[in-house]
Design a protein around this nucleic acid. Structure first.
Lengths: 227, 227
DNA sequence: TTGGACGAAACTGTATACCAAACTGAAACG
DNA sequence: CGTTTCAGTTTGGTATACAGTTTCGTCCAA
């Protein structure tokens, strides 16, 4: 399951080297290897990935735009730590985008615009992954479910906004193992039902509470990792 | 009135050259000089701005992340044209962010968090600018009003999302002269009153209808410029 | 011993030159 | 008239160099 690069196909193969560095670096940061606070040194990275400094800088610039690193003049990029406020900000931002996108997606699906097939496949896939005990795959699938809903809203801007947030969510879930597996699947199923039957208001409200239900457990589980 | 660079001070002086190229290029695009469809040639720009290709590429990358240009592999960046769908997408995205941020800002202000002074100054400034017949300044002020509300939500992610949208709004207003001056000022005043008295629900609803009221006039005025 | 001044090393920000791959457009050809 | 080829242009990427900052360790002095 490829998390990034959905919906914005043109970006996928663009600028191969910088793209590759970005992808590997993001994966590494999400995995926690360059720990928060670590300075990302251009020369070091360019040697590690066997490219010149240019693609490295492009990748870092993109990571900064998406909020994963912070750069200061002449001091380069450091991996951003995460505070309680950051988590709240993340969840608030999701509450802003996802219920809104869900309503639009439901209204579109209700009038026959858009195809919920992929959404159903993802939902089924996450069920199978968790049943098989493959937590990482289940997490990816769950996040892909959210991404697919926003994609079904047909608004590329919202898709664009969601992507880095899902990266942070992946980081959170991998760190905490706080997947709320059964609850999530149940809520996703209800959300799916409301979506495909075109019940925009209901679907939106369910998306809202689904996100909000995750906040406190995550804040508790994440507490030891927060700055 | 500086439109960009509010709220994210650290980005202001960072990477001076690339920042300058970005700023001048964005200003030029918003002004319509490199018309939509124009290819942005790195060498040409680096000569025009008397810098090397590196800062130019950084600026272009940023413009792409914010949606002002589109790049394809080995074909470089072209200024994005605007379609009717783009306008709808822009307004939908604003409807997503601004009412949400407005509610939070109102609730914060209602509990004494945050300072509405700057908001009041901006509102007064726009009134004066329009009274003095300075339309560009009035437009900038009006957009700054929206930016300030989102800033008062305290959510940097939302601020980050809003910035490029205001750039596009500025482009639209300068092109169409569709400022709805009196209506805008009146609606802004009502919005301000609801905000400072902590009426989150009301303020949010007013933000929503304020944005929605602009959509149709703009679509009509903008029709000749759309692809 | 501790505090601060000093200097070298490291790193970023930028410029320049260069190469390969890909695209473009026009001429040549069937 | 349509297709193909080919040279020029442009981007994507690399290597290298250098100035300005920051960082860090050392050394001197109180």
């Amino acid at each position: 399951m490829e998390l990034s690069g959905e919906g914005v196909a043109s970006e996928a193969e663009r600028e191969a080297l910088a793209e590759g560095v970005y992808r590997r670096l993001l994966r590494a940061i999400v995995a926690g290897d360059p720990a928060p606070g670590t300075r990302l040194k251009e020369r070091e990275l360019s040697e590690r990935y066997a490219v010149s400094r240019v693609p490295v800088r492009q990748a870092i610039q993109r990571l900064e735009a998406e909020g994963f690193v912070m750069t200061e003049p002449h001091r380069g990029a450091v991996v951003r730590g995460t505070t309680t406020d950051d988590i709240h900000e993340l969840f608030d931002a999701r509450l802003c985008v996802e219920p809104f996108a869900t309503r639009i997606a439901a209204e579109r699906l209700g009038t026959g615009v858009g195809d919920p097939t992929r959404l159903a496949e993802i939902l089924e896939g996450s069920r199978e992954a968790f049943a098989a005990g493959d937590e990482p795959e289940g997490i990816s699938m769950n996040l892909a479910f959210h991404a697919e809903i926003v994609r079904l809203s047909g608004n590329r801007t919202l898709v664009h906004w969601l992507r880095p947030m899902l990266g942070r969510m992946e980081w959170i879930f991998r760190l905490t193992h706080e997947a709320r597996e059964e609850d999530q699947i149940l809520e996703h199923q209800q959300l799916y039902d409301a979506l495909v039957t075109g019940k925009g208001e209901l679907a939106s409200a369910q998306a809202y509470s689904h996100i909000e239900l995750g906040r406190d457990p995550i804040l508790r589980s994440l507490a030891p990792y927060l700055d």
